[in-house]
Amino acid sequence: MTETLYTATSEYVEEIKALPVKRQVSVSGILKKLDVSRSGYHAWKKRVPSDTSVRRAVLKEKIQKIYEDSHQNYGAPKITAELRKFGERVSEKTVGNYMRQMGIKAQWVKPYIQTTIDSDFSQELKNILNEEFNPTQPDAVWCSDITYIWTFEGFVYLTSVMDLYSRKIISWVLSETLEASHVVECIEKAKQVRNVK
């Protein structure tokens, strides 16, 4: 609190010194108004910053640089990891506290998700199911779907084949892309499981 008061006093005094002569106010008058002793003010001006405050200032500069270099995407965990790469010994909690003091936080960017699109199907393909979703025997109707799953390493895609008679998943394949080959692989696995040609 006292340090903040002295900082405010010092800035105020510097502003006053910059005023034209006829508008200047004495330093003693300002110190009196702010209830700060003259000796205390001069002692504060001569005081050398502590090692802790110097380290804090250096760390904050590094945090700001890493934050800007990441296009404001990094939060405390990633900034802490970056600092540790350069030999800084600092906790994630400390980095988080400094970021709060500096008024910065990670910007969440919605990740790009590749999705399937309508294809230009051949005229040879016909709708033979006709919305009859309750077949009377196993392996009469299969359906397939692809969904994406978020992991810490990025998105993976789950392709599955279901028998509509039992509503049971008979095969599935995990992949990192939406290539048609993964769908073919999933169908081939289903054919092997059910011994269907």
Rank of each mutant, 00 (worst) to 15 (best):
Q64W: 07
K65F: 09
K65H: 09
K65R: 14
K65S: 12
K65I: 10
K65E: 14
I66E: 07
I66C: 04
I66P: 01
I66W: 06
Y67N: 04
Y67T: 00
E68C: 11
E68L: 15
E68P: 06
D69C: 09
D69E: 15
D69P: 06
D69H: 06
D69G: 05
S70N: 06
S70M: 06
H71K: 13
H71Y: 15
H71M: 13
H71V: 11
Q72L: 08
Q72Y: 15
Q72H: 15
Q72W: 11
N73P: 00
Y74E: 01
Y74R: 02
G75S: 10
A76L: 08
A76T: 05
A76M: 07
A76R: 03
P77A: 15
K78W: 08
K78S: 09
I79N: 06
I79S: 05
T80E: 04
T80V: 03
T80D: 01
T80K: 01
T80A: 02
T80Y: 01
A81V: 00
A81C: 04
A81M: 02
A81Q: 04
E82N: 08
L83G: 10
L83S: 11
R84V: 00
R84P: 02
R84H: 02
K85P: 00
K85V: 01
K85I: 00
F86N: 10
F86M: 10
F86R: 09
F86I: 09
E88V: 13
E88T: 13
E88C: 08
R89C: 10
R89Q: 15
R89F: 10
R89S: 15
V90R: 00
V90A: 00
V90F: 01
V90H: 00
V90M: 02
S91K: 01
S91P: 02
S91V: 03
E92C: 03
K93M: 11
K93E: 13
K93G: 08
K93W: 12
K93R: 15
K93I: 11
T94H: 04
T94G: 03
T94L: 09
T94Q: 06
V95S: 03
V95C: 06
G96K: 12
N97E: 11
N97S: 13
Y98E: 06
Y98F: 13
Y98K: 06
Y98N: 07
Y98S: 03
M99I: 07
M99S: 08
R100L: 12
R100C: 10
R100F: 10
Q101T: 12
Q101F: 08
Q101W: 12
Q101S: 13
M102K: 02
M102H: 02
M102C: 02
M102E: 06
M102V: 05
M102N: 02
G103P: 04
G103S: 08
G103L: 03
G103V: 05
I104S: 03
I104G: 04
K105P: 02
K105W: 06
A106M: 04
A106S: 14
A106L: 07
A106N: 05
W108M: 13
W108S: 11
W108V: 15
W108G: 05
V109W: 11
K110R: 15
P111H: 08
P111V: 10
P111R: 09
Y112T: 14
Y112M: 11
Y112S: 14
I113K: 10
I113D: 01
I113C: 08
I113V: 07
I113F: 07
I113L: 07
Q114Y: 07
T115F: 08
T115K: 15
T115R: 15
T115P: 09
T116C: 09
T116A: 14
